[in-house]
């Protein structure tokens, strides 16, 4: 008498290889979740803006989404690796499993769902970033960023200051208008979680709101010729008062 589907499933989970591999899979998934919780945050520099914070969060969540995939793949590879055949002659033939329809479907559905979660989460993040940018736009401080081979220049039109240090007041929405004087560059204030290419004759917009005091490293993230590696400068997120003092010292005027 053929076993019912329920019995089949019970028998399946009674098999030695299934038990070991499942246990391995669960353990590796858990391990990935735990490590994924702190791994990227450990290496990434201190976040000085909400954008950077949300990137850190995103990296963690994406690691968690991929944890079950990681667990499954590593568990099966490890199990079969330690179950290997030794010797110089080919092993005996294994079971002639051509395919298992339900497994293929289950695998496709689960991986599609995981992918969907990642897509939806990413789209929500993207949308909220864009929404925030639009809301902030009217009262944003404008910084015109120009990439030259191989220096960054910052012009603050409202303050009438031109400088090579990126100074930003805390909690002030800022809009970068990025342009290049020659070849392509990519404006990357690392701790702000912002990146945008500098193109010739095409202004690229990027925005953020620094919400923590600290130093900013500004780098170029697009190969731009001989001294690409040295096309970097620093800056800082300061208090409003310090920023105003700095503007005055640069000969600009505060609003």
């Amino acid at each position: 008498m053929a076993p019912t589907p329920g019995e089949k499933l019970t028998n399946f989970f009674k098999r030695r290889d299934v038990i070991i591999a499942s246990a391995l899979g669960v353990a590796i998934t858990a391990l990935t979740v735990i490590i994924g919780g702190w791994w990227y945050t450990k290496w990434m520099p201190t976040a000085l803006s909400t954008d950077m914070k949300s990137i850190e969060r995103l990296m963690v969540i994406f690691t968690w989404i991929s944890a079950p995939v990681c667990g499954t793949v590593v568990a099966i590879t490890l199990y079969t690796f330690f179950n290997r055949h030794k010797g110089d002659t080919p092993p005996e033939d294994g079971p002639a499993i051509r395919t298992r329809g339900p497994i293929v479907i289950l695998w496709s559905v689960v991986s599609s769902m995981l992918c969907l979660v990642a897509v939806v989460y990413g789209l929500i993040e993207l949308n909220s970033a864009e929404g925030k940018a639009q809301a902030d736009a009217p009262h944003a401080m404008i910084v015109e960023v120009t990439g030259n081979q191989w220096v960054w220049n910052f012009h603050y039109p409202a303050q009438d200051v031109t400088t090579d240090k990126l100074m930003l007041p805390i909690n002030q929405p800022v809009e970068f208008r990025i342009i290049s004087a020659d070849v392509n560059h990519s404006f990357w204030p690392v701790q702000l979680g912002v990146k945008a290419d500098a193109n010739r004759y095409q202004v690229t917009l990027a925005d953020t709101t620094p919400n923590k005091l600290g130093t900013i490293d500004v780098k170029c993230a697009e190969l731009c010729g001989l001294y690409h590696a040295y096309m970097e400068t620093t800056g800082a997120v300061t208090t409003r008062a310090d920023f105003n003092n700095w503007v005055t010292a640069q000969g600009g005027h505060t609003a």
Partner: peptide, 10 residues
Amino acid sequence: DVPADNYLHG
């Protein structure tokens, strides 16, 4: 992912 790529790109 676009927001993460803001950091990782390049």
